[in-house]
Design a protein around this nucleic acid. Sequence first.
DNA 1: TAGTCATATCTGATTTAAAGGATATATTAA
DNA 2: TTAATATATCCTTTAAATCAGATATGACTA
Lengths: 117, 117
Amino acid sequence: MTTITTATTYELEVDLVTRFFQVLADPTRVRIIELLLEGEKNVSELVQRLGVPQARVSSHLGCLRWCGYIGTRREGKFIYYRITDRRVSELIDLARTVMADNAEAVKSCLRLNEEIS
Amino acid sequence: MTTITTATTYELEVDLVTRFFQVLADPTRVRIIELLLEGEKNVSELVQRLGVPQARVSSHLGCLRWCGYIGTRREGKFIYYRITDRRVSELIDLARTVMADNAEAVKSCLRLNEEIS
DNA sequence: TAGTCATATCTGATTTAAAGGATATATTAA
DNA sequence: TTAATATATCCTTTAAATCAGATATGACTA
């Protein structure tokens, strides 16, 4: 990093890993993933379930789609989204169990956000 | 989020999950975790291995420590850091394998960063 | 005690992503 | 073709996290 001109393969791979986690670091995207794990849904259904403006939902879906975690299928006016890799749910489940064990510590993680309680 | 006055338990839990992933969404922190998986190390060793200014390393360590993923032990002048929950490595490994399958798609994920190649 | 080494914290600047709102595209139906 | 619905994209603002550098704390040593 800093000013290393030639990034090593390892550094590029770490960047990919962090980018991957970055995608999962947004509450709306996590909720979208969990809703889609129930079964495929179109954007309007997601908007209704999430209570989030359509433009934002669409934008988050765009992120997830470009990153390859979800796929789409058009049916008439609607575009249905679905999870293409179930391992994403493993990842979230694993995160949950790890967190459950030190939830208190995470809650008071001042570095990322002061007020959550 | 936004201005929902009464956050549900579920929403708070999603926030914790995203916060958890946020911690893993920084390249320096991921590299620190992987170095510590080799065995405990003090800050100076990490600074040397990472090639990152001490202040920044210390700050990232602070984040990881407050979040409960690493622990410390003082020995004379040195403070040694270690991973307290090996499942963090499972998480990173899982992320890597998922990514390996759609690395190309992730590379071109324009939403998060335009230029990575 | 003074000095040095190891680590932590603070402050300001830069970068990055999310939010918000308006608008554009595409499909269907009349 | 026009209207209506579904979805996507653009632009500006705002918030947050990283960075960079200076400085502070705390422990050992002479």
